[in-house]
Nucleic acid binder design. Structure first.
Lengths: 192, 192
DNA sequence: CGGAGATTAGGACAATTGTCCTAATTCTGT
DNA sequence: ACAGAATTAGGACAATTGTCCTAATCTCCG
């Protein structure tokens, strides 16, 4: 499993940016974390925006993989949406410490008016389109888009408050509530 | 209306921190924004944490004032909760640009493991306790706490996605949805 | 008026930042 | 084995950061 230096840099940068934020992550920290010199780092990424771009592309790839896996693992659109909601439980330890990787990155880049802002937002778009497709398959028609945004918004809210209050019971309650809403919703829906 | 230099510093810092984040706001920027020298600034606030503390205290004060005003302006707990939800509409322009001032600050300080983190979280606690009281007055008993967190979480989610997607229709839809949920909820409640 | 204390200006300071350069070392293909 | 390319190390660089100092100015009370 030979991971290239470049890959190891992107791995370390991804994690550090998630844990400490983009602006609070320096070249020196990333280089130290990987165990290479800054000169070597510079050979692979010439600017801080370059490494940020690579991290975002990596997250986009991994998100696509994750969405594909959820699709493969679940026969029904309802099951797939539940898989999405369930990341709040599966990743709750990290979310309670550092928040949602997507939401916190987009929030930071938005405040910085950073050039990579749009590309980072694509992470949200990926989830939104995927959720919309599931709701469409559920037979929601024009409501699929708004419903996708609704699920996305509620998940984001849970993430934000989870990292503030560090309250696991709250997370589980909200996930249960969201899942019940989904079940009740799909039961009332024309196609089920 | 003679505002002291100190007050003008806190005002400017508050706004800059909201717009650009705490870490991306420098002493020099704040001093420039107020129109004073860095030396003068240093006379009032010796460290960056001091100015952050003052900004947080100011936000806490203003939040208490706002919650008090909502209480004075609305006769029923339902009306008060609606007033809370409605900040998403009233402040939508700012929220679409910079997100929620509370959520984004807590998220940033959390990633920095900043000493002022706990004090910033008190902003959320203020809203949470206030909302809980309204639900208690509605007769929700033990459910008042979870309901308060639920409303808080959904508002946070809307704020986050509002600044990413900059979609006013989405915000209005979610606020309508939340208000309808409130109405339906209180209608089904023992005390109404 | 005069002097003490608060306020202000302007700059010094070391540390850190992102960026860049040069010279070694390692790898690759022939 | 050897030339050329890719990779790596170690530092230089100007700019910016938060912090701190000193001296000038202002304010206000006796």
């Amino acid at each position: 499993m030979p991971s290239t230096t470049r890959e190891r840099i992107v791995d370390a940068a991804d994690q550090l940016i998630y844990e400490h934020g983009f602006e609070h992550t320096s070249f020196a920290q990333i280089a130290d974390s990987v165990g290479i010199s800054r000169g070597n780092f510079y050979h692979h990424f010439r600017t801080k925006n370059d490494i940020l771009d690579a991290v975002i592309e990596r997250r986009l790839d991994r998100t696509r993989d994750m969405l594909g896996a959820w699709k493969a693992d679940n026969d029904t659109p309802l099951g797939r949406i539940r898989a999405f909601v369930h990341i709040l439980i599966d990743n709750r330890a990290l979310i309670e410490r550092y928040g949602c990787p997507v939401g916190t990155l987009c929030a930071e880049l938005g405040k910085l008016a950073h050039p990579a802002r749009g590309r980072a937002n694509e992470l949200f778009v990926l989830f939104q389109r995927w959720l919309r497709r599931q709701f469409t398959e559920l037979g929601c028609g024009d409501e699929a888009g708004p419903l996708a945004m609704h699920v996305l918004a509620r998940s984001q809210g849970v993430s934000t408050l989870a990292s503030t209050f560090q309250d696991e019971a709250f997370v589980r309650r909200e996930v249960d509530d969201l899942e019940n809403w989904l079940l009740q919703f799909s039961a009332n829906n024309p196609v089920h």
